[in-house]
Design a protein around this nucleic acid. Structure first.
Ligand code: SF4
Ligand code: SF4
Lengths: 145, 145
DNA sequence: TGTATTTAAGACAATTTTGTCCCAAAACTA
DNA sequence: TAGTTTTGGGACAAAATTGTCTTAAATACA
């Protein structure tokens, strides 16, 4: 049950790490994040470029440069991230993957799946990077293996 | 949100089609299924070979040959299919994909995801091919675009 | 000005997934 | 037996995903 691509998983972990370092001011370098979370620097860089291009992050080059959230972590929700990294149709995809679905022509798992998607979307809508970052900085949860 | 691979999606559609033809006796040819559902014959064949090797289907070669469910469709559940086609760890995969998870070392989305997985597993456990096939043969649901 | 640091961008390779094709094996029919 | 139908199995190709690398651009600082 792969729900998110690796690119999204790495991006999310990295964003939560940033949110968990809330006391820090200024930019966080991608190199530091990649090292701390033990993920590929170059791969993460590409994902972060996408996030920068879509207004989730702002970047700054040079010494003491790096990336920073464009908004307080309280105002960035999982839905926003997934929207950028997985596409706007993320919550429209389906178990049986038939194109052009709707109430008039459902597949046989529609009733269940519709509800499952609704629950997941609701959770993603209300879960902020701040909330996840707090859990991590409280030491109760982890981001690395 | 891709939950199932194409191979699984095609396999599932095909199995539900077979279950929807419950009045028929004998083997159903893979060619017929592929044509009716508009999916690749060769690709479906490979998936069906896997299902045959794992006891979900039995096959018979030659004229009037094809495949048949090894058990009544009432006794084949989505969990059984997914187990074979996606692997035994299907319901162990996670949003953040950290290895070796558990209650002692959860990631920050664990609480939500654990519940989401439980709900999905429960549904897969109780949903039979017969139930889905009936919905299709009642003409209320569809399997093709 | 020159060097070090850091992101931007894109080429490129490796891997996995998806899809196609060919031929062999089994079974039926004439 | 010969010919047809159908699954079995493997080679192969195409596409998508994942991962690596190189170079350029921007910035800081000595
Ligand atoms: S009918 Fe519903 S669950 Fe099925 S493929 Fe369409 S939108 Fe998805
Ligand atoms: S902590 Fe839970 S949700 Fe997070 S990766 Fe592990 S098992 Fe999955």
């Amino acid at each position: 049950m792969r729900v998110l691509s690796k690119a999204t998983v790495y991006g999310l972990r990295a964003l939560v790490y940033m949110a968990s370092e809330r006391e820090r001011t200024g930019y966080v370098s991608i190199g530091e994040i990649a090292e701390k979370l033990n993920i590929s620097f170059h791969f993460l860089t590409k994902t972060f470029q996408t996030l920068t291009q879509h207004g989730i992050l702002e970047s700054y080059r040079g010494p003491n440069g790096g990336v920073a959230l464009t908004k307080p972590a309280e105002q960035l929700f999982l839905t926003d991230i997934v929207h950028v990294l997985e596409g706007a149709d993320f919550f429209d995809k389906c178990l049986l993957g038939l194109p052009g679905c709707g109430v008039e022509a459902p597949c046989p798992v529609h009733d269940f799946w519709k509800e499952a998607k609704r629950a997941m979307k609701e959770e993603f809508d209300i879960t902020s990077l701040a909330e996840l970052g707090e859990k991590v900085s409280d030491e109760r949860f982890r981001l690395v293996a």
